[in-house]
Design a protein around this nucleic acid. Sequence first.
DNA 1: TATGAATGAGGCTTCATTCAT
DNA 2: TATGAATGAAGCCTCATTCAT
Lengths: 193, 193, 193, 193
Amino acid sequence: MNRRSGHESRKRIVDAAVKLFSQSGFNGTTMRMIAKEAGISVGGLYLYFKNKEELSLYLIKEKLNEFYSKVLLPLKEIPSPSQALKEYFTKALEFAKENRELIIIHAKQQGFTFGIEIKKEFFKKEREILKEIITRGIESREFKECEPEEVAKLLMNIIGGYVLSVVVEPENLFKPEVCIDILLKGLLKRSNL
Amino acid sequence: MNRRSGHESRKRIVDAAVKLFSQSGFNGTTMRMIAKEAGISVGGLYLYFKNKEELSLYLIKEKLNEFYSKVLLPLKEIPSPSQALKEYFTKALEFAKENRELIIIHAKQQGFTFGIEIKKEFFKKEREILKEIITRGIESREFKECEPEEVAKLLMNIIGGYVLSVVVEPENLFKPEVCIDILLKGLLKRSNL
Amino acid sequence: MNRRSGHESRKRIVDAAVKLFSQSGFNGTTMRMIAKEAGISVGGLYLYFKNKEELSLYLIKEKLNEFYSKVLLPLKEIPSPSQALKEYFTKALEFAKENRELIIIHAKQQGFTFGIEIKKEFFKKEREILKEIITRGIESREFKECEPEEVAKLLMNIIGGYVLSVVVEPENLFKPEVCIDILLKGLLKRSNL
Amino acid sequence: MNRRSGHESRKRIVDAAVKLFSQSGFNGTTMRMIAKEAGISVGGLYLYFKNKEELSLYLIKEKLNEFYSKVLLPLKEIPSPSQALKEYFTKALEFAKENRELIIIHAKQQGFTFGIEIKKEFFKKEREILKEIITRGIESREFKECEPEEVAKLLMNIIGGYVLSVVVEPENLFKPEVCIDILLKGLLKRSNL
DNA sequence: TATGAATGAGGCTTCATTCAT
DNA sequence: TATGAATGAAGCCTCATTCAT
C-alpha cells in the first residue's frame, strides 16, 4: 500500500485529471485512466472527490479563481483607464494561452457550459470591473461617450473569442497589440488622437 | 409499418437530432431518444446515417455550408469595404443568434472541436474573404495601414466570442452596432472621421 | 422491376449464397449481402426461401444428394470389392476437393452439425453401401476376416478426416493412392500379397 | 459483492464458457449466459477476458497445449515405432472422446477454422513428430518403404475424421484397435507378418 | 413476381461507483 | 488512508424478417 500525504495524493489526482481531461475530454476519460496516471487506486480517487463530476468541477473552479486573483483584481489598482484596459487584454490573453489545457477542459465539458452557475457569477464580476473602468474613462474624458455595459460585454466577448480560438484553431489567434490598438483608437476621443 | 418517403424520414431524423443534441449534448442523447423523437425505429436511423457520429457530423457540415452561402459569399458582391464589414457583422451575429441550437451542438460536441478538419478549412476560407475586404479598404484609403491578416483574425475572434456567449451566457451578448461602431471608428483613417 | 424466370432467380440466390456462406460463414453472411450479390431485392429472397436457415439447409441437401448419386450409387455396379473401394476413395476425395466451398459451408454451419438429421440418414446409407462391399469382399475371400461395420466406419472416418483437412489445412491433404495402398495391403489376405 | 480470488473467478468463467459454447456454439452463447452460469456479473467477465472472442480463443489454445503435452510429447520417449503409433492412436482417440465438449467448441467456432494460425502451427509440430516415428520405422526395417510425410498426413487425417465424428455422429466412431490393426498390418513388412 | 424502407429485439461492451479487505 | 475486484445499468449497433406498394 502506498503511503502518501493526503495533500500529495490530491495534487496527483488533479494533475492527472487536468492532463487527461484536456487530452480526451470528460467522457473520453475514465476514472481508471485517472487512477493509473495518478498512480493511485480507483477506490482512492473517491476518497478525495465524491465523483467524476465533482472532480471536473473542482478543476474549473480552481482556474477561475486563479484568473480572478491574478488578472482581474490587480486591475482595480491601475489609475489610468486606458492603461487598465491594456493590462486587461495583455494579461487575459496571456493567461488563456498559458492555460490551454484547462481551457480545453472547459470546452469539452459540455461545451463551456459545465458549472454554468459558477461561471455566470464569475462573468458578472468581471463585467462589473470592466464597466467601472470604462465609466471612469468616460468621466475623465479619456473615452468617448458610450454605453459602458455594452462595451464591457464587447471586450469580454473578444477575450471569449480568443479563448475559443485557443481551443479550436490556435493559428487564428490575433496579436494582442493589434487588438488593443484598434479598440483604443476607436474608444479614445478624437482630440486625444 | 410506417411508410414515408426517404426524404421525409431523413428530415425527421435531422430535426430530432438537432433538438436533442442541443438540449442534451452528444453523449447525453441516445439513439433511442432520437428515434423516438423522430417517430422512427432505432434501426431506421441507421438506414440514413451510418452511426451517431456521422449524424452529428452531418448537422455540423450542413450549417457550415449554409453560413458560407448565406453570409460569406454575398460579401464579395459589396463594393464598399466598410459596408462589407458592417454586413459581415450584422449577418454573422444574426445568424449565430438564430441558430443557437446548432451552435450548442457544435459546442457540446467535443467543445467545438468535432469535425475540426472541416472547420479549419472553413475558417481559412472565411479568413481569406475578410482579408481581401480589408486589403481593398487599405488600397482605397478607406482603412488605415494595418496587417490585414491580423485584423481578419481579430474580426473572426469577435464573432467567435459572440458565438461562445450564445452558448454560455446569452446575457453577455453585445449589440452589433456598438461593436461595428467601435471597430470602424478605429479602422478608418483620421481624415475620414 | 427486374423480370426474371423464377428458376433463374432461384439459381442466382443459391450461387450467391454458396459464395458468401463459404466466404463468411452463416452468421457472417447477411440476407442483404446475399440479395446484393444475387442482384435481387431483400424481399425477393423470401419468395424463394422461407428464411435464412432454409436457404442454408437447401444448399446442404443439394450437395449431399449430388454426392449420393455421383459417388455412392455407382459403387453398386462395380463387381470387384477392392476395385469398389478404390473407386470410393478416388471419387470421394476428388469430390471433396472440388466442392471446397460447400464443405466450408457445412463446416461453418454449426460445425458440420447443421441439418444433422438429414446428414445422419445420409451417413447411414453410405455406411450400408460400404458394409455391403466389405462383406462381399470377405465372402469372396478377397478381404481377410474383419468386422464390416467397423471397417466401414473407419473408411468413412478417413474421408471425414480428408474433408476436415479441406477446410482447416489443405496442406495436410494426403495422396489418395497412398491411402488406398496402405488400407488395401492390410485388408487383403496374406496369400494375395 | 462477491469476493473471490482472481484465479477462482477465471476458472468459473472458463468452465461456464466450455459448457455453454459446446452446448450452443459461439454465436448461440451470449456473454450474459456465461456470466450467469459462472455466477459472476457481466462486467466481471471483461476483467478476465478482453472480449468474447478472446475467451473462446483461450479455451482452444488451452486444449491444444494439453493435447501436446499429454499425447504428443510422450511419444518421443517410446523406442519402438509401431508401439509409438499404437500409443498415438490410443491416446489421441481417447483424448478426443474425453474432450467432446471442447471439440464441439472448435467445430462450432467457424467450423474448426477459428484460431487457424495457432492450429496450423500445432499441426505442423504434430506432423513432424509422426514423420520422425515413421522414418525411424523405415530405417529399422519395421515399416515398409513409404513416404513418411504422406503417411503422417494420413494418420493425422484419420484422427481428424474421428474428431469430426465425435462432433457429428458419435455412432460412427470406429474402434481404435481395428484402425491400428488395419493400418499396421499394412505398414509392416511382409517378413514381419 | 419484385421492391426496399421499416421494425425492434437483443448482442457486445463500457465504466462510474462500491465495498470487503 | 488505500486497494482493486465486482457490479449492472445502459449505450451503440446489427440484422432477419415483414409488408405496403
